[in-house]
Design a binder for these strands. Structure first.
Length: 237
DNA sequence: ATGTTAGCGTGCCTGCCCAC
DNA sequence: GTGGGCAGGCACGCTAACAT
């Protein structure tokens, strides 16, 4: 279980994965004195759709899901946020309200930087703006891929695709670059269904099929991928 | 130790889409 | 029009985790 830690930005492990990696010591001190670190327990909401952003959030440790509610009140998970990634950047830059809910998937520590301080830093470092543009482009690419997948793939294919995606999310940092190594995915079936865009029962049935086909193993709530190549084939990747 | 709750798994039924 | 496949929804039972 994650513990609350409030490091100086100079010592922040997550910073090397963020757009703030190029900041010099003086500016790190400035960032450090203008950030507020908050510890959230699993399942807590960081911000709600409709709220006006007053700054940005940077995830220090833990995992966060960004989700939207459909017309019928059904949740759709649109993205995961990992340590070092920024949260709420699109709404802040677009000067719009948040369009999604941010909820912790596990105990997490989040740093909040008010928008004045954030824009002061980005104005001084054009490279950060470049990094943000790159990040937003990547998010757009992912959204387009997801849209295509939802429109053209069957639930079975989408589930395989998302299991492979989650495998990367849940990999420990030290084996992150290993293609074949698998992780234990610990996510409620309901959340999995909300990512795939289907019903919980359908996910349970398909997971059971995958298990019988020896593509995965299930230990309680843990899902472990056994046949990465097989899942790739099903997902048509 | 016991009761409660949340999550998981399964069966059954229904609706939609497509091929014939 | 009909049958088959796919997917969703509802109901129910089981189990593990949690609270008292």
């Amino acid at each position: 279980m994650a513990k609350f830690i409030d490091p100086f930005c100079t010592k922040c492990e997550a910073r090397k994965d963020s757009c703030f990696y190029m900041l010099q010591n003086g500016d790190l001190d400035f960032l450090n004195s203008n950030k507020v670190s908050t510890f959230y327990k699993k399942g807590q909401t960081i911000f709600y759709a409709g709220r006006t952003p007053t700054g940005i959030y940077c995830l220090l440790n833990g995992k966060i899901k960004l989700s939207k509610l459909g017309f019928d009140g059904k949740e759709q998970i649109v993205r995961f946020v990992l340590p070092g990634q920024l949260l709420g950047i699109r709404a802040l830059i677009a000067k719009r309200s948040y369009t999604a809910f941010a909820t912790t998937l596990e105990d997490s520590t989040v740093c909040f930087i008010d928008k004045e301080s954030f824009f002061k830093i980005t104005n001084k470092y054009p490279a950060i703006t470049g990094c943000l543009l790159s990040t937003l482009s990547q998010l757009l690419q992912e959204a387009e891929d997801k849209m295509t997948s939802m429109a053209q793939k069957h639930v079975r294919e989408r589930l395989a695709e998302n299991l492979l995606f989650l495998n990367n999310i849940y990999k420990p940092v030290d084996i992150k670059n290993s293609v074949e190594t698998t992780a234990s995915i610990i996510l409620p079936r309901e959340d999995l269904a909300n990512i795939v865009g289907t019903a919980t029962e359908t996910v349970i049935r398909l997971l059971s099929d995958f298990k019988n086909e020896k593509l995965i193993s299930i230990e309680g709530r843990k899902i472990i991928l056994k046949d990465i190549a097989g899942l790739h084939k099903i997902a048509r990747l």
